[in-house]
């Protein structure tokens, strides 16, 4: 896959409303910027993430990630562990159908980590940009 210098990937981020979503709000308060083509979807807990959501997101975007609470610090005890399992499950499915499994990721952060949020998003964005466009996108 040729890496186009002008390629701007689109990312869908699922955010737990107890950590990732609040971290994004914190980032907004601090006016920290991150790439425009990052869209967020709010979930009540990272454990609500579903393989189906990831797959649907990858029909539209080049990469997708879930933001969960710090390990051992989930408001619902095991939500982030469940999310991690969902991510690895999605990775396996992606590998089977010939898409890079790095296109799906999980990141842990706390509600007051606005800086970490932008760092994570920027890092994931750069990684996906190196990978190039997602071959599995459904273009109607």
């Amino acid at each position: 896959m040729s890496t186009n210098q002008n390629f701007q990937p689109k990312i869908v981020v699922f955010a737990c409303e107890n950590s990732g979503w609040l971290a994004a709000e914190h980032a907004a308060e601090l006016c920290l910027s991150y790439p425009e083509k990052v869209e967020m979807i709010k979930l009540p807990c990272s454990g609500k993430i579903d393989v189906l959501f990831f797959m649907k997101a990858l029909e539209k975007a080049d990469g997708t990630a879930v933001l969960a609470c710090q390990k051992e610090n989930c408001k619902f005890l095991k939500g982030n562990v469940r999310a991690e399992q969902r991510v690895s499950q999605t990775g396996k499915i992606l590998k089977e159908i010939g898409i890079e499994e790095e296109r799906v990721g999980i990141f842990y952060l706390a509600a007051n980590m606005g800086h970490k949020f932008t760092e994570i998003v920027q890092g994931f964005y750069d990684k996906i940009r190196e990978l190039g466009p997602n071959p599995g996108k459904v273009i109607k």
Binding site: L43, P44, L52, G79, R82
Partner: peptide, 28 residues
């Protein structure tokens, strides 16, 4: 209301109000 059960359900029989599968998929 964490929705872990809704995500884990293999038969997709469980839906969490305000965050149903159809709502999130419609957003996507």
């Amino acid at each position: 209301k964490c929705g872990i059960c809704a995500a884990e359900c293999p038969g997709k029989a469980i839906q969490l109000p305000d965050y149903t599968d159809s709502q999130i998929l419609a957003q996507l």
